[in-house]
């Protein structure tokens, strides 16, 4: 029993990270119907810039957090402005290939700036791990779960309560109709990119104390986040949260109860299964189209 609880705790920790990444995927898909395969690289940029700001630059945690998230969001918006909006024939395949290219480019930039070594930093707070029925829960895990729910609740309020948020939703439903009612749809897409990559950076920041950050960490995290988003239903905020947590817990249980070789296989088997049984995800309602 104690072991199972420990598996669940470690599953929740990694699941919450997948969830934050999945939310980033979902938000962008919501407003642009685009899957950004460079999303994992924005997680990497967030993690490494946070490590740099709070390490060598000696900034306190909160300003370092805000600066790295804002900085990555700006890079995300530049990416939209320079690489996505300038495409003459913006059909999905072209855009996806562009994001794949951007991913390789950003990875290279990350390697040049931060080198090939891994970087680490201490947890947000120095509390010892909590002991719950013999299983250890890290203070950093609580931080991660708390930040997940705060950001998702914030985004939920933003979409439902503010005019800008509603305008974004309108754009998601029909860009043309939104444009006709006077919503600056291009700006909304830019904003969606900023928010989505900013979420990626948040994931990077909260993961940096529990693991090692390096220039090539983004790809796998991006794929896991993508699985989580598909699992929960692409385009749904809470669906992404559920998908992420579910994926994390199943992975940890797969490792614990079956075999450690199954860790990554769990994610992708689950993805195949979901795509087969319920292509719109657990709480997705979006119609799925194949391109």
């Amino acid at each position: 029993m104690q072991e199972v609880l420990q598996y669940i705790f470690s599953g929740i920790t990694s699941g919450a990270i997948y969830a934050v990444i999945a939310v980033g995927f979902s938000m962008l898909y919501n407003s642009t119907e685009l899957i950004n395969f460079a999303h994992g690289e924005f997680v990497m940029l967030g993690a490494l810039s946070f490590v740099t700001l709070s390490g060598p630059f000696q900034l306190p945690l909160l300003p370092a957090f805000i600066l790295s998230v804002a900085g990555v969001a700006v890079i995300g918006m530049l990416f939209e402005r320079l690489a996505i909006r300038t495409v003459r024939t913006p059909n999905p395949i072209v855009l996806i290939i562009i994001t794949v290219g951007a991913s390789i480019f950003l990875k290279g930039v990350g390697m040049l700036i931060w080198g090939k070594d891994a970087h680490t930093m201490p947890p947000f707070s120095g509390h010892p791990p909590l002991d719950i029925a013999g299983a250890k829960l890290l203070a950093q895990s609580l931080w991660i779960v708390a930040i997940l729910f705060i950001t998702v609740a914030g985004l939920h309020l933003f979409y439902k309560k503010t005019l800008t948020g509603k305008a974004m939703e309108a754009c998601a439903i029909s860009q043309k109709a939104a444009w006709l009612t006077g919503i600056p749809s291009k700006f909304m897409v830019l904003l969606a990119f900023g928010l989505s990559t900013g979420m990626g950076a948040v994931a990077g920041v909260i993961i940096s104390p529990i693991t090692m950050s390096s220039y090539d960490m983004g790809t796998m995290l991006g794929l896991k986040g993508f699985c989580a988003a598909m699992l929960g239903g692409l385009g749904s905020l809470w669906g992404s949260v559920i998908g992420g947590l579910l994926l994390g817990i199943l992975e940890a249980l797969g490792v614990g109860l079956v075999s450690s070789g199954l860790k990554d296989a769990t994610a992708f088997l689950l993805l195949l299964f979901i795509l087969y049984v319920r292509p719109s995800g657990i709480i997705g309602s979006v119609e799925v189209e194949r391109f």
Binding site: S10, S14, G256, S260, K263
Partner: peptide, 8 residues
Amino acid sequence: KDSDMTAQ
């Protein structure tokens, strides 16, 4: 590249 080995 795993970030957590507590399960193992």
